[in-house]
Amino acid sequence: MSFQEKSTLAMTGILLAVFGCYFALVLGEVSRSPLRDVTYKGLMVPVVVALVVLTAVAHAVIAATAPADADANDERDRSIGLRGGRIAGYVLAVGCVCGLTLAMVEADTFWIAQVLLGGLVLAELTEGVSKLVLYRRSA
C-alpha cells in the first residue's frame, strides 16, 4: 500500500469518525434544543481541532512506519486523485442544490447549514472511497 493510499484510508476513516460524532450529536439532541444555532457553531471548533490533530498524528504514524515512502506521489496517484475528485464533484453539486433549495423555501438557517456541511462531508467521503476502490483495482 503506497503512502497516498494509506493517507486516503486514514483521512476517510477520520472524516467518518469525526463527522459521524458531529451529526449524531447535532441531528439528535441539538436539533431539538432552542439553543441549537449556538451549539452547532460551537461544535465546529472541536471538530476542526479533532480533524487537524488526528490528521497530523495519522500522517506522522504512516510516515514513521515507512520513512522511505513518506509523501511519495507519482503519476498513478495523481490520476487516481483526479478521478476521485471528479466523482466527488457530483456529490458536492447535489449537496449545493439541496442547500439552495432549502434557502429558496426559506428553511431554517440551521438546516441549510447542516445540509451544506453534509454535502461537503459526503463529497469528501465519496472521493476517499472512490480513490480506495481505484487503488485496489490497479494495486
Binding site: S2, F3, D69, D74, E75, R76, R137, A139
Partner: peptide
Amino acid sequence: GVTRQTVNAIELEKYSP
C-alpha cells in the same frame, strides 16, 4: 521516479504508464 506500487501495477497489467 514512481512508487513501488505503481511498478507492481504496471507489471500486473492493471495500469498503463
